[in-house]
């Protein structure tokens, strides 16, 4: 579904992605973790073209990302992206946020989109917040709306860029619960996160990236209990402290 082949990227002189080779199969859930500045966010943002790759090949849903022949706008309708900062549209209600793209991009009739939207919002636990504006919602609620917004497009792939890093601790689990539910419905997912409990529960593989390069991959069990490299061990000791 997603395949990185020898992908490289530079920000000026800084080499932020080094020879990334990684593939994600359909219905697979892959968790990407690493210290800050490791390039994990850049990695996931390349998949839907928010960042461009400078070298190598990136194939998503059979299409080559970054090549002129590829219609990125069309491809993005198949990829859902959840941001760390939620990025909900402040001038639209929760329901309007969720139905905006389906109505204008997929050209789904308004009534149909709205009922699908309500269904999704109810599924993420916000049945009473259809007409609320983002400013009236807590961080956890906003992120759940953001997830519903991506899901309403019925994408083939869901990408999560540190979805809980900007949340107060008590709201993290409500968002993770929704993500677990998405995973259990056999969605292809790539999640950049530090939440190890989540990884253990639903991830098929954990990818550890540091300083732009993939250091280690393995099942959650392997990675958390028996990390093979020194850097993985150092990283794990820091985040498992609490």
């Amino acid at each position: 579904m997603i395949e990185f082949r020898g992908v490289n990227k530079w920000f000026g002189p800084l080499h932020v992605l080094k020879d990334i080779t990684l593939s994600v199969e359909p219905r697979e859930v892959v968790v990407v973790c690493g210290p800050s500045g490791s390039g994990k966010s850049t990695l996931i943002r390349c998949i839907n073209g928010l960042e461009t790759i400078k070298d190598g090949d990136l194939v998503v849903d059979g299409q080559h990302v970054g090549e002129r022949a590829t219609n990125m706008t069309q491809l993005r309708t198949e990829i859902g992206f959840v941001f760390q900062q939620f990025n909900l549209y402040p001038h639209k209600t929760a329901l309007e946020n969720v139905t905006l793209a389906p109505i204008h991009v997929r050209k789904i009739p308004r009534a149909e989109a709205k009922s699908a939207g309500r269904e999704l919002l109810a599924k993420v636990g916000l049945a009473d917040k259809f007409d609320a504006y983002p400013a009236e919602l807590s961080g956890g609620q906003q992120q759940r709306v953001a997830i519903a917004r991506s899901l309403c497009m019925r994408p083939k792939i869901m990408l999560f860029d540190e979805p809980t890093s900007a949340l107060d601790p008590e709201m993290i689990s409500e968002v993770l619960d929704v993500m677990v539910a998405v995973a259990e419905e056999s969605m292809t997912m790539m999640v950049v996160t530090h939440e190890m409990g989540f990884a253990r529960k639903v991830a098929k593989r954990v990818v550890f990236i540091d300083a732009g390069a993939i250091v280690e991959t393995g099942t959650p069990e392997e990675f958390f209990s028996h990390p093979r490299t020194e850097r993985s061990r150092a990283f794990l000791s820091k985040i498992l402290r609490h």
């Binding site: 839907n48 928010l50 706008t73 069309q74 491809l75 993005r76 309708t77 990829i79 859902g80 992206f81 941001f83 900062q85 990025n87 909900l88 549209y89 905006l100 793209a101 204008h104 991009v105 917004r149 991506s150 497009m153």
Partner: peptide, 11 residues
């Protein structure tokens, strides 16, 4: 972030 969210939805 707003532009990115709209971009990511395929608008």
């Amino acid at each position: 972030g707003q532009v990115e969210a709209a971009l990511a939805s395929g608008l």
